[in-house]
Amino acid sequence: MNTILDHATRLAAWRLVLLGLLGPLAWGAQAQARLERDGVVLYWGLVPAAVVSQQHALADLHGGPPAGKVHHLVVALFDAKTGQRIENAVVQAQLSETGVVDAAPKYLLPMKINEQASYGQLFGMAKDGPYLFRVKVKLPDQPAAIDFTIEARVPHADMR
């Protein structure tokens, strides 16, 4: 079997799984993208609290909602070579907004969406964007964290 084709097929399948993972959240995602660095593929989505609250009580999610315009950052990680989902990472994200003091980094907690491992956290934003998230992914078998930069915009600011 052609390993390049097999890998491409698995990667395409994982992309479809990720879209399925976000399920009811995907239609309301304010921003989403794929990033790759140092052998890790990171898919992310930024979802307004109004959409998340249709599926989950915000008070029960990651310790409750923070102050501000609340959004949920969701991250799914994959091994770039094998397409395998990464379930044992430690993930942190720090929100930056123009003209606002940077928030303290937060851990993105492991969570299951449709029985698939992901990481997520609620963030309270002061403004309508743009948002910059500095994400650090620490894998158990690597000495240093992998840094990702997520630039997010809110095209539908009325959905909160």
Rank of each mutant, 00 (worst) to 15 (best):
Ala157Thr: 13
Gln30His: 05
Gly120Asn: 01
Phe133His: 07
Asp147Thr: 13
Arg160Phe: 02
Arg160Val: 08
His156Glu: 04
Val75Arg: 02
Leu42Asn: 03
Thr82Asp: 12
Ala80Gly: 11
Tyr107Asp: 09
Gln121Val: 01
Thr82Ile: 12
Ile86Gly: 09
Gly124His: 05
Thr82Ala: 14
Asp60Phe: 05
Val51Ala: 05
Leu25Asp: 01
Leu11Gly: 03
Gly83Asn: 10
Ala13Val: 09
Leu108Arg: 03
Gly129Ala: 08
Lys136His: 08
Gln32Cys: 06
Glu87Val: 15
Thr98Phe: 14
Leu108His: 03
Leu122Ile: 03
Gly129Phe: 07
Glu151His: 15
Thr3Tyr: 14
Leu11Ser: 12
Leu77Thr: 02
Glu97Pro: 08
Ile150Trp: 03
Asn2Tyr: 09
Gln32Trp: 09
Ala117Pro: 07
Glu151Cys: 12
Trp27Met: 09
Pro140Thr: 07
Val100Thr: 14
Thr98Ala: 15
His72Pro: 00
Ala13Arg: 15
Ala144Ile: 05
Leu108Met: 05
Ala33Arg: 12
Phe148His: 03
Ala29Tyr: 01
Leu139Lys: 09
Ala126Glu: 06
Leu18Arg: 10
Leu16Phe: 10
Lys69Glu: 01
Asp60Ile: 01
Gly28Asn: 06
Asp147Trp: 06
Ala57Ile: 00
Gln55Ala: 12
Ala8Asp: 13
Gly68Ala: 06
Leu61Asp: 00
Ser96Glu: 13
Asn114Leu: 14
Val52Trp: 00
Ala13Cys: 13
Gly64Phe: 07
His7Thr: 11
Asp60Tyr: 04
Gly83Glu: 07
Leu95Cys: 08
Arg134Trp: 05
Met159Arg: 11
Val101Met: 12
Gln84Ile: 08
Ala13Lys: 15
Ala12Phe: 12
Met125Thr: 08
Asp128Ala: 15
Val40Phe: 09
Leu16Glu: 13
His56Ile: 04
Gly20Leu: 07
Ile113Glu: 05
Val75Phe: 02
Val101Leu: 14
Gly99Leu: 10
Val51Met: 01
Gly39Pro: 09
Gly129Pro: 05
Ala93Leu: 04
Lys106His: 08
Lys136Val: 00
Ser53Pro: 00
Pro110Gly: 10
His71Gln: 03
Trp14Thr: 11
Leu77Gln: 02
Pro155Phe: 10
Arg37Cys: 06
Gly39Thr: 12
Thr98Asp: 14
Leu61Tyr: 04
Lys69Trp: 02
Val154Ile: 09
Met125Glu: 03
Gln84Glu: 15
Lys127Leu: 10
Val40Lys: 11
Leu5Thr: 14
Val47Leu: 04
Leu42Phe: 06
Pro140Ser: 10
Lys81Phe: 11
Met159Ser: 04
Leu109Ala: 11
Leu132Ala: 14
